[in-house]
């Protein structure tokens, strides 16, 4: 895999808002993002609200949280391996079945896709406002080579220069 981000060649860009924290929707977002990277498009993903759960590191903790933030953090999925399906969740049986099928059929796992995205220079932006709302802190996000925290202006600026804009 190439290690440097593809050159910024104007409109050959994909900007995607990743809002849903559902396993299946994050999977769709990552497949589109990797496909776009294969087209040498510059890819900007804007993770906001529930999708931010997918970027939490399972082995990291943040200090100095208030009670509500701690509760939020406890009740929501911690990382890409803990996400729930939008359908057929069945108290955790659904995701286990899907992950088994994915492995069998040679579909990369979410953690693998995130790793590949990092290698291909896919930019991941985290909406700072919604991250703060949910009580998450930067130090509990996963290590990703092209990660930054931003607001809506960054998304709009990138989206205006993008041929493809999506909201998932």
């Amino acid at each position: 895999m190439q290690t440097t981000p593809p050159p910024d060649n104007g409109s050959d860009q994909l900007s995607m808002v990743v809002f849903s924290g559902d396993f299946d929707k994050i999977l769709a977002a990552m497949i589109i993002a990797l496909g776009a990277a294969a087209y040498d498009m510059k890819v900007n993903l804007f993770f906001t609200f529930w999708a931010i759960n997918a970027l939490r590191a399972s082995d990291k903790k943040a200090k100095g949280k208030n009670f509500i933030s701690k509760m939020f953090g406890f009740m929501m999925p911690k990382g890409p391996d803990k996400l729930a399906l939008s359908k057929l969740q069945m108290a955790g049986i659904g995701p286990a079945l899907i992950k088994g099928l994915m492995k069998k059929q040679g579909v990369a796992s979410l953690p693998e896709m995130l790793k590949t995205a990092g290698e291909l220079g896919v930019q991941i932006n985290i909406c700072e406002m919604s991250m703060n709302l949910m009580g998450f802190k930067k130090e509990e996000m996963m290590d990703y080579p092209h990660l930054q925290y931003c607001g809506v202006a960054t998304f709009l600026s990138d989206a205006q220069d993008s041929k493809v804009q999506l909201f998932i």
Binding site: M1, I31, A38, Q105, V107, A108, L120
Partner: peptide, 8 residues
Amino acid sequence: TACPGPLL
């Protein structure tokens, strides 16, 4: 490998 494996 399944989509998008071969493309990548």
